[in-house]
């Protein structure tokens, strides 16, 4: 009896989900009420939250001062860049990232080979999107290690920029600048 109830509930949710994704206009009044409530609530909450924020009076001047030190496209490329390359720090960090990703990748795949969409390792549930991101990053790092191709390095830089990991993107950018200046 319970099982049949669950199936009916599941089907009803599936039907609603399909309607939602196909943008059918016919809306449940409860859904509409919830939507309006969420908009009102979050607008109210945003007002309270933002009104509490106190920004230092010198925030903009500090920012401008910091920006003055930076030249777009030629970002402090000489000394910092040289030290990065000479110390091999960049190479080590790439090697470390690739090993970590390799371990994570195999651990994820070996722990639950029967499930393609949702990986379970012990009590840890891994989001498939995280797995996909790690695989993508790992693939890009592997490409660089297998071929000294500048394009692969550029792809990895793009990947870090689009994912907001700007520190790594900047380090790769420095390296690319040095390579191109040689």
């Amino acid at each position: 009896m319970m099982k049949r109830g669950n199936i009916i509930l599941g089907l009803s949710n599936l039907f609603k989900w399909l309607k939602f994704n196909l943008n059918e206009v016919e809306e449940d009044p409860d859904d509409r009420a919830l939507e309006c409530s969420l908009i009102r609530c979050m607008s109210d909450y945003r007002r309270v939250e933002i009104s509490e924020i106190r920004i230092s009076f010198d925030f903009d001047s500090r920012l401008l001062k910091a920006l003055e030190q930076i030249e777009i496209g030629h970002e402090e490329n000489s000394s910092k860049l040289q030290s990065i390359l000479k110390s091999n720090y960049f190479r080590y960090s790439l090697a470390f990232s690739s090993i970590s990703l390799l371990v994570a990748f195999f651990y994820i795949n070996l722990s639950e080979p029967s499930q393609n969409n949702f990986h379970t390792a012990g009590s840890i549930n891994l989001d498939p999107t995280l797995v996909q991101e790690l695989s993508e990053e790992f693939q890009l790092i592997r490409e660089i290690r297998n071929s000294d191709d500048i394009q692969s390095l550029k792809k990895l830089e793009e990947y870090y920029i689009t994912h907001g990991i700007t520190d790594r993107a900047t380090r790769i950018h420095y390296s690319l600048e040095t390579i191109s200046s040689k």
Partner: peptide, 18 residues
């Protein structure tokens, strides 16, 4: 505030790629 300040500076450094 420091995080946002750093993020703005870091964003400026990568703005050419945005």
């Amino acid at each position: 505030e420091d995080i946002v300040q750093d993020a703005f500076i870091s964003g400026y450094r990568s703005i050419h790629k945005f």
